[in-house]
Design a protein around this nucleic acid. Structure first.
Lengths: 339, 339
DNA sequence: TTGTAAGCGTTATCAG
DNA sequence: CTGATAACGCTTACAA
């Protein structure tokens, strides 16, 4: 059915070794005449070597696994695109794995990736709940892994992240400088590392200026539009004196916009809003959202580069890499009116 | 390094054949005692068979390729998620391939997928320009393919789509019924099948009521937010009497919103807008967008099911499948004021 | 420069 | 019920 190296060899009147040689080495080892003949046959029959068979002996599949919570989250689709692009450029294909932060699903996928002999894994779903078993599994199977976006304070694996605490601090300070004293905060799930760190930054900014943190102003929002919406509704309803909200990702900020609209609360007149991520869909928001910009593309690229370094040169990175974030001030925040 | 069937066999004091048997057949062929012993060893050492080696002989990889223009487009990330979910449920992994409608990239990927011996391909990037070569390539390599979303009028391959003409007709008729006579249309790239069909529906609706189509009211918009924005700017500037715009996807409708905002044109007071796709991000649009709903999840599921049927039972579907769409009327359209 | 042959980790065939 | 052994399509010593 499908052409094999054997048949090509026969057609070119050489051994399969010779065919293999012209397939793999570009320079030496094959006579000029022979090479030409073989190349012609290959071209004529449009022969492609079977990567599976090759993997059997080379022990690498030129394949990596990408494990994320959900590709529909634009943060992750941006990330996936960057990762896929650079991986492909470096000769790797990527398996997409959506795991939704579900341990069962995650484990299933990990086993699958191990069975399929991926050369490495880029991993962004570390929920502190499920991290432990997963890390052991990965470690035991001795498979290169890069964590991204969502890490773990005491992980043995490295990755590429941003300084979430700093970024959370930055965003909150911006609001404080504008005179806000009642700053709501909508967090991601409590089990997610980066949410906790962003919240830490929020607290730090308060402490630094001696502002007390009102427990009622902090609500969990699940990192989804709906979660942001629900949390904002409660926040706005139960805290009449609230003047601003810091949503720990843009998706939830979208939800805040929806809630505000329904409650006839104006942004930024009645309430200031800060997001986190700087997703491209922010463009359609009115007013334009003040947010923290993450270098998503860069995170993807760097993680793949280091993963492949790890794979091909057995070169581990010493420490995790932290990329820079930036506060982007737009129209959703303004100084609190003094009255 | 990694455990093999051979070592498991030795540890359990049986032949590799026996191990293979307990690995694959759940019922018969192995004695109760033996089976138990083997299973224990497998469990103890956490052994997983090497899928690559298995593929060598079974001739299937339990892997499919997903070829799309860009995962960052929320339409495609929704689709990808649905496809990945159901594929995984059916035991398949998916390779993500972003091809951006670029022939060179597409061909590279196709070769890669062929080399990696994917069992089938789900394909959504058929640009009429590049279709021909691709189809031959696929045909020659005798690999099951399902087209989705973007088809081709004279393709030999089948797929799962929607009736774009009908949907375009539906949307346009809605506007016409509201009294609109100057209806702008922002299309996707001219080479894309579904855009052409949606436009056909737009024209049909006009013809049916004897409305002339003003050539200036139709502009190409590249299916992106930016494309919609640019086209809307021109459309709104050059046609002072325009009362509505039909954007052939939601992403471009987002752009229309932006353009309108900048030009201080109110939706729906000054201009009605209809989109296409019903993306979940529509929720953050003010006013809420009237649009055509596509059964994205269903498209993904059906395509995978049929692809796998094709793979496992060599069962080709006779004809392409067309799923139902629905017009969802929200707040971005209103009757044209008579003055 | 070229070819022979071993082997990668499985499954499948065929005996026992 | 169990086990040798031959594939699968390639790469890689090692020989010629």
């Amino acid at each position: 059915m499908k052409l094999t190296i054997k048949e090509i060899a026969k057609k070119a009147n050489v051994s399969i070794t010779t065919v293999s040689r012209v397939l793999n080495q570009n320079k030496e080892g094959v006579g000029k005449e022979t090479r030409k003949r073989v190349e012609e046959v290959i071209k004529e029959y449009n022969y492609r070597p079977n990567a599976i068979a090759r993997s059997m002996i080379t022990k690498n599949t030129k394949t990596i696994g990408l494990v994320i919570p959900d590709i529909r989250n634009p943060f992750f689709s941006d990330l996936a695109r960057a990762i896929e692009d650079i991986a492909n450029k470096m000769g790797y294909s990527v398996f997409l794995c959506n795991v939704d932060n579900q341990l069962k699903v995650l484990e299933r996928y990990l086993w699958l990736l191990i069975e399929k002999n991926v050369d490495g894994i880029i991993f962004s779903s570390s929920d502190s709940n499920l991290n432990d078993g997963v890390q052991k599994l990965l470690k035991k199977n001795n498979i290169p892994v890069m964590f991204i976006d969502r890490g773990d304070d005491d992980s043995e694996f490295n990755g590429v992240f941003i300084d979430n605490t700093e970024a959370g601090y930055l965003a909150t300070s911006h609001l404080i400088k504008l005179g806000h004293k009642k700053i709501g905060c909508i967090t991601g799930p409590k089990t997610i590392w980066n949410s906790n760190h962003r919240l830490k930054g929020y607290k730090l900014a308060h402490e630094q200026v001696g502002l007390k943190i009102d427990r009622n102003l902090v609500r969990e929002g699940s990192y989804t539009m709906k979660g942001g919406y629900d949390a904002a509704k409660v926040l706005l309803r139960e805290n009449k004196d609230i003047t601003s909200i810091f949503a720990l990702n843009d998706l939830m900020a979208f939800g805040v916009y929806q809630a505000a609209r329904e409650l006839n609360i104006l942004i930024p007149d009645d309430i200031s809003v800060v997001g986190f991520d700087n997703l491209s869909y922010n463009q359609i928001l009115t007013p334009r959202l003040t947010t923290i910009e993450q270098p998503i593309k860069k995170i993807g690229e760097v993680s793949v580069e280091y993963l492949i370094k790890q794979i091909e040169q057995a070169l581990m990175i010493e420490d995790s890499i932290y990329l820079k974030t930036k506060l982007i001030v737009r129209d959703s925040t303004r100084a609190v009116s003094k009255d």
